[in-house]
């Protein structure tokens, strides 16, 4: 019997372009940098300084940027879906700042890397996203109010982090590079636990894509379709916080990627979560890696923190979204 099939023609191209962009950004990220040398000559000769640059500097850095870009973009898409607010993203509503505060406190107490740092970052991010989410629900906050809550949370959490670093100046985590986002200090010790969390979280979120779509129909419609709305929302926010939190533990406060990429995917392709989640991962990873590679080579041998490049792109984009007034779902 004939039945409706999804139209995948356009979406297949979007996937192919995304995969190609990710591959190209990966290759460029490995090939380009402040030091130029023949990669093929040194790559497997582990005793040479060049090979060490490839395997212990560029490779973890590129993997870090791919994972953080994917994680923040997917986290942004999830937060936007759960809060029914297209202006929301981990950096804008203060989730990253919550993770940063937790990382600062963790560092102050001597947890310098690995699982414990990621765990602290997740806890900080989760507490923040739950505060904003419960506040939005309790006060029936409009899209704009949620963003203003985010501004307040960012200021408050930033001030708390600064207080910790003022009284404990040996806490180096709140350096300028961390505040604006940077991959220069990515190590395998940070990368491995974070990558496991990010990959598992994205896979779980992908399996819950239909739940996210049903949630965007509104709480009452979603309950009418049998969804346990409260539980599912907490699961989504927990996973979004895990993604944002571990990204902060790797690269600091990267801004705007969680806003920019989901918006771009929705505009060029689809809002359906089963495509939105993998496409955000692909394009987010590619975007941050390209920005990071650019930040390494544009003033070589000096480096710009990647957060500066992303803020230059992301901030005008945010203003553009505000201007277009496409901040959220409409009511019927």
């Amino acid at each position: 019997m004939k039945y409706l099939k999804e139209n995948k023609f356009k979406i297949e191209y979007i996937y192919i372009i995304g995969i190609l962009m990710l591959l190209i950004s990966f290759i460029l990220g490995i090939l380009l940098g402040a030091t130029s040398f023949n990669i093929s000559k040194y790559i497997f000769d582990i005793n040479t300084p060049e090979a060490r640059i490839i395997w212990f500097v560029r490779f973890p850095r590129v993997m870090g940027s791919i994972l953080c870009g994917a994680a923040l973009s997917v986290s942004g898409a999830i937060i936007q879906g759960v809060l029914a607010n297209r202006l929301a993203s981990p950096s804008i509503i203060g989730v990253n700042a919550g993770a940063a505060l937790a990382v600062t406190i963790a560092t102050a107490f001597g947890f310098l890397g690995g699982w414990r740092l990621s765990l602290f970052a997740f806890i900080g991010a989760f507490i923040t996203v739950m505060i904003v989410s419960l506040g939005a629900k309790r006060w029936g906050a409009s899209r704009g109010t949620v963003i203003l809550m985010g501004v307040a949370m960012n200021s408050l959490l930033g001030a708390m982090s600064s207080t910790v670093t003022t009284f404990m100046p040996n806490v180096s985590v709140m350096s300028n590079d961390f505040k604006i986002g940077d991959f220069s200090s990515v190590t395998y010790a940070k990368l491995i636990p974070a990558s496991i969390v990010i990959i598992i979280s994205i896979i779980i979120l992908y399996t819950l894509a239909n739940e996210l779509d049903v949630l965007t129909l509104g709480d009452e419609s979603a309950k009418g379709l049998g969804l346990n709305v409260e539980v599912v929302k907490v699961i989504f926010l927990m996973l979004a916080a895990a993604l944002a939190g571990v990204s902060v533990s790797i690269a600091g406060l990267l801004s705007f990627v969680g806003l920019l990429i989901p918006h771009a995917i929705r505009n060029i392709s689809t809002s359906e979560s089963r495509h939105l989640i993998p496409l955000c991962a692909l394009y987010g990873g590619a975007f941050v890696t390209i920005c990071d590679t650019f930040s390494r080579i544009v003033f070589a041998p000096y480096e710009l923190p990647v957060g500066i490049i992303m803020a230059f792109i992301g901030a005008p984009f945010f203003i553009f979204i505000l201007y277009k007034g496409k901040g959220g779902h409409r009511n019927a």
């Binding site: 965007t216 129909l217 419609s221 009418g224 049998g226 346990n228 409409r330 009511n331 019927a332």
Partner: peptide, 21 residues
């Protein structure tokens, strides 16, 4: 359970979100 109720009763809310789908 809620999902089994949803197999017996459909509910259309007065106010509906209009998602991009």
């Amino acid at each position: 359970p809620q999902n089994e109720i949803a197999q017996k009763i459909a509910y259309l809310s007065q106010t509906k979100q209009i998602p991009d789908i």
